[in-house]
Amino acid sequence: MLKKLFIVFAVIIGIVVLVVAALFISSWTSRPKTDKEFLSQLKGEVVFTRRNAEGVSDIWKINANGTGEVMLFHNDSNPFKADALSPLWSKDGKKIYFISFDNNKKEIILEIDDNEKNINIIKNPDRKPSTGSEWSREKDIRVFNGDIYIIKDGQEVRIFKHSGYYNQDYVAGSGASEASWSPDKEYIIFEVEGFITIINKNGKITKLTKGSAPDWKY
Results as ranks from 00 to 15, higher is better:
Asp114His: 14
Ile119Glu: 12
Ser163Lys: 15
Asn63His: 11
Gly194Phe: 05
Phe101His: 13
Ala179Ser: 06
Pro129Tyr: 10
Glu45Pro: 07
Phe73Asp: 05
Glu45Gln: 13
Gly173Val: 02
Gly173Tyr: 00
Ile151Asn: 09
Thr49Ser: 15
Ala22Gly: 11
Phe38His: 02
Arg51Thr: 10
Gly93Met: 07
Ala22Met: 04
Ser174Gln: 13
Val192Phe: 05
Asp102Leu: 01
His162Asp: 14
Asp126Gly: 10
Ser26Leu: 10
Asp215Trp: 06
Ala64Ser: 08
Trp216Phe: 08
Leu18Asp: 00
Glu156Thr: 10
Ser174Asn: 10
Thr131Phe: 13
Leu208Gln: 07
Val171Asn: 08
Glu186Trp: 01
Ile15Asn: 04
Val8Arg: 13
Phe190Asp: 05
Gly55Cys: 05
Val56Phe: 03
Tyr97Gly: 14
Gly211Glu: 00
Pro125Cys: 10
Ser90Thr: 13
Glu156Val: 06
Gly132Tyr: 08
Lys152Asp: 13
Gly68Tyr: 05
Lys3Gly: 07
Lys201Leu: 10
Ile99Ala: 08
Pro125Ala: 13
Val143Arg: 09
Glu186Tyr: 00
Ser30Cys: 03
Ile189Lys: 08
Glu178Met: 06
Lys43Ser: 15
Lys152Glu: 15
Ile148Trp: 02
Lys207Pro: 07
Leu39Ile: 15
Val17Gly: 02
Ile59Trp: 01
Trp28Tyr: 11
Lys123Phe: 14
Leu2Ser: 11
Lys152Tyr: 05
